[in-house]
Write a protein that binds this DNA or RNA. Structure first.
Lengths: 399, 399
DNA sequence: AACTAACTTCTTTCACTGAATGAAATAAGT
DNA sequence: ACTTATTTCATTCAGTGAAAGAAGTTAGTT
């Protein structure tokens, strides 16, 4: 139930401050005159607000413009150091933190193991410690920290900050955001891990300035993130994007989730590895996807077939996404896309074959691998995105 | 590329006018004091704006409130006759028009056949004529007409008003909205037909006040409409919701779209009918879905099996929607849901079976049939929704 | 029964605030 | 002298909230 916004002077100011901030963020260094033209605000308003933003250190002077016949323009740009955020990727046995500035540049990266622990408050404490260590060792003022973003696998609600289900820790309805917040006294945002990556693409990656796009991750599982009207789609309760668990064949093998014939059970990395292992002696059986790729590169027909079949089925899954949602951009990412042409070429081929009637013509497809740092950076960008979010959108933080 | 909004006094006024209008629309008859409480606006602002809306005839006085110890409240309510809209469902051989008031009540319904014509400008002319006839015969002032909404099958772009592909007329990139607009001199909005129904559900049906939901229509084809954050999702180019053309079995039969194994080729009404016809003499072979249902009711095992199989596959399609998008509500509609328990029960069963891990717990499922009037009413509600839309959202009309 | 005073609540009025606006003034260069 | 960038400033107007005004009921009095 979205609440309506009430209009008053404060709102106007907030809108225009935000407008100028975003204008500068988008276009880089701009003069006040250029801001006036782009934002369509009056010169007076731009003058007053930019000077306010300069005193608040949100903007910086950055040299002068070219000579165009009169007084030179004073160029203004965003101060990336005006604030920072820590993004956390929480995994089964590791906590990965990334401290970024406003432009999402990683200033400090911190990767620490975690004891095999399941108790929510102990994990929250470990997480808060990792964040404090990251900040302390970075040299950045603690006061500049705008908030924390946490990304973790499973189903969680960003609105309430509750983890409804975590496959790693076996949690049910754990208020993780609250547990961390009371330790750090900062706004804490939480997201599905795929969504953090999606946000990162939306803000700083290929999805910049694109209204509607989808991110599909391939690895141990298959996930999906969705951007709709420049906003991250979060489903009703945060549970969404279970692309890996759509039914591919109702008569197929049992999946880890208990259902039969999930896409994941056919086409995710473990399925590919298992497929090759079955017909091999225990000695030279592949243990990781990289092993399979090595075999395929070495000419192994079975490994090539396994990768090709996985690719084809993934392509059908991607086609389902395109048919249902028709995004302008489809980003395929995750550890699994390193598998090279043996997997990716059949995937793109199947995507084309199974997409409805010319729908793909307007869809750009990008394949790119990721690493842990990208995920953590994405988690940090949740916080950054809130900072630049229009005041018209209700803030959904646990602040 | 969404443009940012600039804040000024006009915007404030527009926001608050809209806020009050929507407050009254939601809550029914309200006094100024009550509006003040709900909208959190100051008494002064409410007084001024409501009086402005009264002079503009957008609001009406509607009696007095109960005695609460002092002066009685003057109740205000929305004037449903402040404006009206015509919704058009454009079909292969018929034009169906519905003239509705602001509360989406149908004031006039007009159904007229169309010659087997394909030329865009002739069809646009016929459409404009049908609209004029509808308005003239309704007795409503022409000046009250706020706009036209057109719903038609195929792929069209609401932003530009261009029909990219129409299965009925074989069109490619026809600027239908423009063709109609120059004849009527009114804003013309266009949508996929399923989206018009979705909008109708969002504004006046089961989807009222629900942020995220999906509408799936079953009939000759299988379509889907999506509401995200209280907004209709329109994909990148308007082409979306092709649930009927996701691949169910890559080795399946050829679909009308040219692909193999589409959901539609397995589970839409024509597939059910064909399935039963094959094993019957030409004489008592069913020609419509109703024939099949009659056979099933009469005890025919084959008809029952055909319906059950169709239902099961539909259920898998619905599960795909839930797995990917996790809406709070799923509305199943269209002519095909009249098929009763032989089809619907297996469908719901399959939906449950193929949905990921408790994701369905929070999803409400509603099955309800529709008729042509509902579609046309939905098309009209596009216009109505624009009228009440927040001024913060860029209007995407061909106005 | 008629009238009045007291009281309560709803609605309007009005002085005030502050943000955008745009013209004019000022600054800063060639 | 000229051009362009930026600031200043009087003006406008929407929201704010206190106070005034309007409109009703109740209780007490005549």
């Amino acid at each position: 139930m979205s609440t309506f916004v009430r209009g008053n002077k404060d709102l106007i100011r907030a809108i225009n401050r935000n407008l100028i901030l975003n204008t500068v963020r988008r276009h880089g260094a701009l003069s006040r005159t250029q801001i006036t033209e782009i934002s369509r605000l009056s010169v007076g308003a731009v003058s007053q607000i930019t000077n306010e933003l300069l005193t608040d250190q949100w903007l910086l002077q950055s040299g002068e413009g070219d000579y165009t016949g009169g007084r030179r323009q004073t160029l203004l740009r965003l101060n990336p150091a005006a604030g920072c955020a820590v993004g956390v990727k929480l995994m089964e046995r590791r906590i990965v933190c990334a401290l970024t500035d406003l432009e999402s540049r990683v200033l400090r990266y911190f990767d620490t193991p975690m004891p095999p622990e399941q108790d929510p408050s102990l994990i929250a404490a470990a997480l808060a410690d990792a964040v404090e260590t990251t900040v302390a060792s970075s040299g950045v003022e603690r006061g500049k920290l705008l908030g924390i973003g946490i990304g973790l696998a499973g189903v969680s609600s960003p609105q309430t900050g509750v983890v409804h289900y975590s496959p790693f820790f076996g949690w049910r309805d754990v208020p993780l955001a609250d547990l961390v917040r009371v330790r750090l006294h900062l706004p804490v945002y939480m997201e599905n891990d795929v969504n953090t990556l999606t946000l990162s693409e939306m803000l700083f990656g290929a999805g910049r300035h694109i209204d509607n796009f989808a991110v599909v991750t391939i690895g141990r599982g298959i996930g999906m993130g969705l951007v709709v009207n420049q906003q991250l789609y979060q489903g009703a309760t945060g549970g969404m994007g279970e692309l890996g668990h759509i039914t591919f064949d109702p008569a197929g093998p049992l999946c880890t989730c208990g259902k039969r014939g999930c896409l994941e059970a056919f086409a995710a990395d473990p399925a590919v590895i298992a497929y090759v292992r079955h017909s091999r002696s225990a000695l030279d059986a592949p243990r990781t996807l990289d092993d399979v790729i090595a075999l395929a590169n070495g000419g192994d027909a079975l490994a090539r077939a396994a990768l090709a079949r996985s690719g084809e089925i993934l392509g059908i899954g991607l086609a389902t996404v395109v048919n249902l949602l028709c995004p302008s951009l489809l980003i395929v990412s995750g550890e699994g896309v390193t598998a090279g042409d043996y997997r990716i070429a059949p995937m793109l081929e199947a995507l084309r074959t199974h997409t409805f009637n010319g729908l793909l013509d307007d869809v750009q497809v990008i394949v790119e691998p990721t690493d842990d740092q990208a995920w953590a950076r994405g988690a940090a960008s949740i916080v950054i995105s809130k900072v630049f979010e229009s005041p018209l959108i209700e803030a959904g933080a646990t602040a």
